[in-house]
C-alpha cells in the first residue's frame, strides 16, 4: 500500500469515532461563534412581524421524531414570535407524529406562563388530520365542515377562537414546518395557489433547494432552512435555544467532513499521479 493509499485507509470505527468526538467536544465546551442571519429566515421573521396583532395564523406541525432535533427548535422560535405579536394561532398536524411533537414544543414555549395566552382563545391545536393535501384543502375550504373536535376531544363549537374562523378567508398567514416534500409543496398548492394566502415554510435543509423556486417566485414569503434557519430564528426572536447551541457542533463536525473530503481527494489524485508516473 502506497503512502497515498494509506491516507484513506483509516478503519471505519476510527472515522466514525472522530465524528462522534467532533460533536461531543463543542457540546461540552461551546465556542459561542457569531451567527450571520440568512435572508430566507429574515423574510419569515419580517412576514410574521408585519401582521397586525390579533391576525389568525394556521400553523402546521408537519414533522415527527426524525425531524424534531432540527425542526423542533425552529417551531419553538417561530411560535415565540407569534405569541409575542399576540397572533391567534390555529395549530394542526399533517404528520402522523405531529401531535406528539405538540406537547414537547409547548412545554418549551409555555404560552400561558410567558405570554398570558389562553388555550382556546389565543391558540388551539386541532391534532393530526390524515390525508395530506386533502386535509389542507379541507381545513382551508370549510374548517367547520371537516373538523368537529380539537386535539383533546373538545367540540370546536366550544372553542372561542374558532367561532370566527370558517376557512381560508379568515386566515392571514399559513405557516408550516415539515420534513415532507409533499407537505411542503402541498401548502403552496392549497394555500397560496388555491386561496392566494401568504405562506411561510420551514423544512429540512436538504429540501431547501427544491423549495427555493417557490420562495423566489413569492409563493413562499419566508423559508426556514433546517437547523440553520432555526438558529437564525432563535437569534432574530432573541430566544436562544438548541439550534444556536448546535452552531458549534456544526463548526466542528462539518470541518471534519471537509478534512475528510480534502484528504480523500489528495489521496485519489496522488494515487492517480503515481500510477501515471509508474507507467
Amino acid at each position: 500500500m502506497s503512502a497515498w493509499e494509506k491516507l484513506t485507509a483509516l478503519p471505519r470505527e476510527i472515522v466514525l469515532g472522530l465524528v462522534l468526538i467532533a460533536m461531543i467536544l463543542p457540546t461540552l465546551k461551546p465556542l459561542g461563534l457569531p451567527l450571520m442571519v440568512g435572508t430566507m429566515a429574515k423574510d419569515w421573521y419580517d412576514t410574521v412581524d408585519a401582521l397586525p396583532s390579533g391576525s389568525v395564523v394556521l400553523f402546521d406541525i408537519g414533522f415527527g421524531s426524525g425531524g424534531y432535533p432540527s425542526l423542533g427548535p425552529a417551531t419553538i422560535a417561530a411560535l415565540h414570535q407569534m405569541f409575542e405579536k399576540d397572533l391567534k394561532i390555529i395549530l394542526m398536524a399533517t404528520a402522523l407524529e405531529g401531535s406528539m411533537m405538540y406537547p414537547l414544543i409547548m412545554n418549551k414555549v409555555k404560552p400561558e406562563e410567558n405570554y398570558g395566552a389562553v388555550y382556546g382563545e389565543d391558540y388551539v391545536f386541532l391534532g393530526y388530520i390524515a390525508g395530506g393535501q386533502t386535509a389542507m384543502a379541507g381545513v382551508l375550504g370549510d374548517l367547520h365542515a371537516i373538523v368537529s373536535t380539537e386535539y383533546t376531544g373538545k367540540p370546536i363549537d366550544q372553542i372561542p377562537l374558532l367561532k370566527g374562523v370558517e376557512g381560508a378567508e379568515d386566515i392571514s398567514l399559513v405557516a408550516y414546518i415539515t420534513t415532507s416534500g409533499d407537505t411542503s409543496e402541498g401548502w403552496v398548492y392549497q394555500a397560496y395557489s388555491a386561496y392566494g394566502k401568504d405562506v411561510v415554510g420551514g423544512m429540512l435543509s436538504m429540501m431547501t433547494t427544491s423549495m427555493k423556486p417557490y420562495y423566489d417566485s413569492g409563493q413562499l414569503k419566508g423559508l426556514l432552512d433546517g437547523v440553520k434557519g432555526a438558529a437564525d430564528m432563535e437569534f432574530l426572536t432573541r430566544h436562544p435555544g438548541d439550534a444556536i447551541k448546535s452552531s458549534d457542533v456544526l463548526s466542528f463536525s462539518q470541518t471534519l467532513v471537509l478534512i475528510f473530503i480534502i484528504v480523500g481527494n489528495i489521496s485519489y489524485w496522488g494515487v492517480k499521479t503515481s500510477e501515471k508516473e509508474g507507467r
Binding site: 484513506t8 483509516l10 471505519r12 472515522v15 466514525l16 465524528v19 462522534l20 415527527g64 421524531s65 426524525g66 425531524g67 424534531y68 432535533p69 407524529e97 406528539m100 463536525s253 471534519l256 467532513v257 475528510f260 473530503i261 484528504v263 480523500g264
Partner: peptide
Amino acid sequence: YLPIGATMYASLCFYMSYGAYK
C-alpha cells in the same frame, strides 16, 4: 418511539462522513 426515530435518521451523518472520506 421518539429516541429511536430521532436517532435513526440522524445517524445518517456517520454514513455521510464516511462516504465523504471514501
